[in-house]
Amino acid sequence: MTRTIRCALSLVLTVLSLAATSCGAAPGARASSPAPDFSLPALDGRTVRLSDYAGKNVVLIDFWSTTCDPCLAEMPHLVELYKKHKDRGFVVLAVSLDGPESRAQVSSTVHDREMIFPVLLDEETTVAARYNPKRELPFSVLIGKDGSILHKRGGYQPGDEVVLAQEIERALNE
């Protein structure tokens, strides 16, 4: 391959990468659309609305399931991030996509994983359809203090919590 062709190919790939990032297509890209409000029943019986927190707190909505191994692997990291930042206005809303027949399993998992933040039940997946239409699991949405979506991320690999911690810190400092 000649040097000119390699340079041209490199330039095209760079432009495509920048375009994907600016369009929000890249993982972890910042967006600025307002987060749609919702209300869901919590595992403890109360009703939780996103608007109870959005516009005041930095909120992480985490879609998960008891049958999703990456979700369960990520959960201890979310618990630690919540403990570290809750006094600064950070909230985790863990949205379970398990069906009504799995409520006992959700309760058991919440207890075993020491999930001390609100656990919401999206048994009909209506909220997931608005935020996560591809139904990726886990799937996280970080919402800034102004109520806008700052970051979306699908999946979990060890080490992703470091990037998430940086995003949370940045959002708390804005």
Rank of each mutant, 00 (worst) to 15 (best):
S32E: 08
S32T: 10
S32K: 12
S33K: 08
P34R: 02
P36T: 04
D37R: 12
D37I: 07
F38K: 09
S39G: 05
L40A: 01
L40P: 03
P41H: 06
A42N: 10
A42I: 06
D44Q: 14
G45T: 09
T47C: 03
T47G: 07
V48N: 06
V48F: 07
V48H: 03
R49M: 06
L50Y: 05
D52Y: 02
D52V: 00
Y53D: 04
Y53Q: 12
A54M: 10
A54G: 05
K56L: 07
K56M: 07
N57Q: 12
V59R: 01
L60E: 01
I61V: 14
I61K: 04
D62C: 02
D62H: 13
W64S: 09
T66R: 00
T66H: 03
T67M: 13
T67Q: 14
T67N: 13
C68M: 13
D69K: 14
P70C: 06
P70H: 07
P70N: 09
C71W: 04
C71Q: 05
L72K: 13
P76T: 13
H77K: 15
L78S: 03
V79Y: 04
V79M: 10
V79E: 08
L81M: 14
L81D: 07
L81Q: 14
Y82C: 10
H85P: 08
D87R: 11
R88W: 00
R88V: 01
G89F: 08
F90M: 11
F90K: 07
V91K: 08
V91G: 04
V92I: 15
L93M: 13
A94M: 03
V95G: 00
S96D: 00
S96M: 00
L97M: 13
D98H: 12
D98E: 12
G99T: 04
P100V: 10
P100N: 13
P100C: 04
E101H: 14
E101Y: 07
S102W: 05
S102A: 14
R103N: 07
R103V: 14
A104H: 12
Q105W: 01
Q105N: 11
S107E: 15
S108W: 02
V110P: 00
V110E: 01
H111W: 09
H111L: 12
D112V: 06
R113Q: 11
E114F: 08
F117R: 04
F117H: 10
F117V: 01
P118Q: 15
L120K: 11
L121R: 00
L121F: 00
L121S: 00
D122V: 03
T125A: 11
T126K: 15
V127G: 11
A128R: 00
A128V: 00
A129G: 14
R130H: 13
K134I: 12
R135K: 15
R135L: 11
E136K: 08
L137F: 09
L137Y: 04
P138T: 09
P138I: 02
F139T: 04
F139I: 04
F139R: 08
F139E: 06
S140C: 06
S140E: 06
L142T: 02
